[in-house]
Design a protein around this nucleic acid. Structure first.
Lengths: 193, 193
DNA sequence: CTAATTATTGACTACTTGTTCCATAACTGG
DNA sequence: CCAGTTATGGAACAAGTAGTCAATAATTAG
């Protein structure tokens, strides 16, 4: 029994994600946000609290969507090892696209380090989810004989996750597509024998 | 024939590096800088121009020192392949140290992406130098039969450089030392057969 | 329709930002 | 010692910052 919102919360949150991803937390002003999101200042504060809360909400949403998308790519593969491959190649395929040009998750880690408890916890959560899924696939691949028995699923998963991070930083820095391909190729090489 | 500087330029630049590395460009205020560097505002502007110029000078110095240190570690090794190993292990050994907790170079890439021409050029230059040196060692290792003939020095060098990037981001995010060890182990695994 | 509740709008505030001005201090070649 | 030059310190400034206020608009339960 009150006036309804004039905007869709998730929709404008996606816009905020785009701004934060491109300019970082400190580099983004509330003016940047309201003008990009197309809502009034008070609406922003009413719906999201303050700048930091908005950032955290954006980061949560970004990371969740990001990992979900990646896992979906993996699930679409025809075998466990193909899942790992597909996830890595996914980055090469989307190299240079604006959405791939900056990972909000990696940027958050670099900007805040371990100084912000909340940022850290969001980052850790999605990192853990990704690693666990990768480890599961690697373990299955090992069981099926797709990869060597000497490979430790958990350690290898951390390695693959690290490769994903490196791919994101490379893309952010404007690396050539061939560079991404090379990184993927040698990452897979580590597992393939 | 004029009043001499009251401070050592490189010395205070090193302090600026520390501040920028921890807080990023946007996250650092001139107040942060002058109070950390222990010099007056006007001295800072007189010696370094403006905030951006100071940042660029700091980034140049950081990257140069960083790559130099890494190459020195490699040169101290007993064989080409040991050089690659030593460089990677170097990160594991220094894991958690404040100086390793944040890489100004990686942070610069994440914060600016490809938007700042000058940052990009500084980053590219040291990246190129590192990659070329890595490629040279890898090529020598291949010639000596330390690694497989199917390994392409340039591509593998990009892969190793990517691993270094990932190690830095992992450390920045407060990853456990074991994670770094795993990343190094699987990076080497890719080359070792 | 009315009352209650929430959203929107735009002006406003207190503060921080990067940068500059200016008077003074320290130095050196002549 | 003097004149010229550069460094320093502190105050000052205009622009930008995150966040708030108060009046108005839109909605619905009764």
């Amino acid at each position: 029994m009150a006036r309804p919102r004039n905007f869709n919360e998730d929709q404008v949150l996606d816009i905020a994600i785009g701004v934060f991803r491109e300019k970082g937390y400190e580099g983004t002003s509330t003016e940047d946000l309201v003008s990009a999101m197309g809502i009034g200042r008070q609406s922003l504060y009413g719906a999201f609290g303050d700048k930091r809360s908005l950032y955290l909400a954006a980061l949560r949403r970004y990371n969740t969507q990001s990992v979900t998308e990646l896992l979906d790519v993996g699930r679409g593969a025809s075998s466990p090892m193909k899942a790992i491959e597909a996830i890595l190649i996914h980055f090469v395929r989307h190299h240079g696209r604006p959405e791939a040009a900056a990972c909000m998750g990696v940027n958050a880690i670099c900007e805040f380090g371990t100084s912000d408890e909340d940022v850290l916890s969001i980052t850790r959560q999605s990192g853990k989810l990704l690693e666990q899924s990768l480890a599961r696939w690697i373990n299955e691949a090992r069981g099926k004989g797709e990869i060597d028995k000497t490979i430790e699923p958990k350690a290898a998963a951390q390695f693959v996750a690290a490769a994903l991070t490196a791919l994101k930083v490379a893309a952010r820095g404007g690396a050539a597509p061939a560079t991404s391909r090379n990184i993927v190729a040698y990452t897979l090489r580590s597992l393939s024998n």
